[in-house]
Design a protein around this nucleic acid. Structure first.
Lengths: 215, 215
DNA sequence: AACATTATGTAAGACCGTCTAACATTGCAG
DNA sequence: CTGCAATGTTAGACGGTCTTACATAATGTT
């Protein structure tokens, strides 16, 4: 007979699927209170285990956070693939749709922004992609492919699709940032971020078609 | 006769300018080790005072961090004003220069990115700007004014300069983000961020002049 | 079944950082 | 010069990370 530490009589000594339970608990806690305030011990509490239990599954707090991000990246890749498969390949509309989809994905997961798009995130992406094609997980490769198609359609042979895709990513990322941190509503209240992305993208691609003088 | 706690015989009981010393110490520590790892107590150690002393000047850790960001924002405003005064008003070149200046400022202070451009930052900016013209501190107003001039020069009467400036800000912010977190070097090694910003801006403004169909 | 081995959980506690409370020293106002 | 306000100190409550030693369960071996 031993002290069970926590409530209930029938709860087995082993949790059964603690690793996953902790990831879910962490995601929920982060959603509620942000990633800065997240405490390993709270995830343990939420899963009804002792504060030391998580360390059987994650060497340190950061490992659990990485696991949470990982799910996010897979999620994003699925999201981007779904969008591509629902629009005409190589069209501006498709590129716009992917941009909007990205902004939607990122801003709907504002609490995970630092986690996924900060230092940790890139490093994780690098590990996930390791040893294989350069952009498998993030969905960025999907964008690059679309841009490549668009360049062909428009006869822009001497344009680097990777460079273009990167610039489009920067636009979407920057806009997401401004949305998440409420810069948009503070400086230009009532404006629609998706609308902004759409017109920006149109103007940008227009300008790319146009000009050599612009470099 | 009392225990002095710390070394030295001649050091006076009172520091003299602890508040500023703590801000400086904090900035240095953050520069070295990032803002996440920053500990109030380390700033205190660096200033040779006890761990409780800082609380005479800052109600909580976040207050000290805000003070650090505040300096950053004033710094940025000065930076932007200097750039504007060194190029022709309303020209594309000026807008590009301001964009590059912004990217330089932000990326050179990568360790302060979360601090200045996360939730804390916006809130702080709001307080700094409070009660006066909407964009005094950030330097964003300077950009808006330049864009406004450019629109006049180009005869774009029905174009909203604020909206345009916001889009340019998003580009610069996104690019800075990609640089700081090493996305650029990972996905397109060797590329120059300033070059990217310049060509993006040219293409974008080109497209804006061009098209009504784009919005 | 009996046993060893491994996986996974618990309790206790070292360590560190935040912040508070009570007390000490100093500068300054009257 | 006296007393208050400002600013520093020590002690410690509190909470989170992570480690160590031990407990329990699952699994495989014979």
């Amino acid at each position: 007979m031993t002290a069970r530490g926590r409530a209930s009589k029938n709860r087995p000594y082993h949790h059964g699927n603690l690793r996953d339970a902790l990831i879910v608990a962490a995601a929920e806690l982060i959603q509620e209170s942000g990633s800065e305030d997240f405490a390993m011990i709270e995830a343990a509490r939420k899963a009804n285990v002792s504060s030391a239990a998580p360390y059987r599954h994650f060497r340190e707090k950061d490992d659990l956070l990485r696991a949470v991000s990982e799910l996010g990246f897979f999620d994003l890749a699925r999201h981007m693939l779904a969008i591509r498969s629902s629009c005409q390949p190589g069209s501006v509309a498709c590129i716009v749709a992917m941009g909007k989809g990205y902004v939607r994905f990122v801003t709907e997961r504002a609490a995970f922004f630092d986690l996924m798009w900060g230092d940790r995130g890139v490093q994780l992406m690098a590990e996930l992609d390791e040893g294989d094609s350069q952009f498998r997980v993030t969905g960025f490769n999907v964008l690059v492919e679309e841009v490549e198609l668009w360049c062909e359609h428009e006869g822009l042979g001497d344009t680097d699709p990777l460079d273009l895709a990167m610039k489009l990513w920067a636009m979407a990322m920057g806009l997401s940032h401004l949305v998440i941190n409420h810069y948009l509503e503070r400086f230009n209240p009532g404006v629609d971020a998706y609308q902004m992305l759409e017109s920006s993208t149109h103007a940008f691609l227009q300008g790319v078609k146009q000009g050599r003088e612009a470099n």
